[in-house]
């Protein structure tokens, strides 16, 4: 089985992160923004895994677990907000319309 050098994994992480960032900036739909955030979180997780592999340390994967918990929490809260907005008559899920408090 071939193995991936951790340095190359960092390159992949950078590209993934930029893609996720572009997604957040480009898309107006809240659902897509959430997915983009997940992509960015995965890029960060990849960096941790790569660092753990480079120094042969299990702490990298512990941090991956932490990111996993964070992503789960973030997705749950984000999706709850989306459902709530939808129920209150904003079916377009446009991130740009939520800019006023009590909107």
């Amino acid at each position: 089985m071939t193995a991936l050098p951790p340095g190359d994994a960092l390159l992949l992480a950078v590209i993934l992160f930029s893609t996720g960032l572009a997604g957040i900036l480009i898309r107006r739909n809240l659902l897509f923004m959430l997915m983009s955030i997940d992509i960015m979180l995965n890029a960060a997780a990849l960096v941790f895994i790569a660092a753990g592999a480079k120094w042969h340390d299990a702490t990298g994967q512990v941090m991956f677990l932490m990111i996993l918990a964070l992503a789960a929490t973030e997705t749950a809260a984000g999706l709850a907000i989306i459902l709530r907005l939808h129920a209150r008559g904003r079916p377009s899920l446009d991130a740009d319309t939520g800019n006023l408090l009590r909107g």
Partner: peptide, 13 residues
């Protein structure tokens, strides 16, 4: 300061 998330994200970037 327009309250739009995407703009804030853009400023962070």
């Amino acid at each position: 300061q327009n309250g739009r998330v995407r703009w804030y994200a853009a400023w962070i970037a």
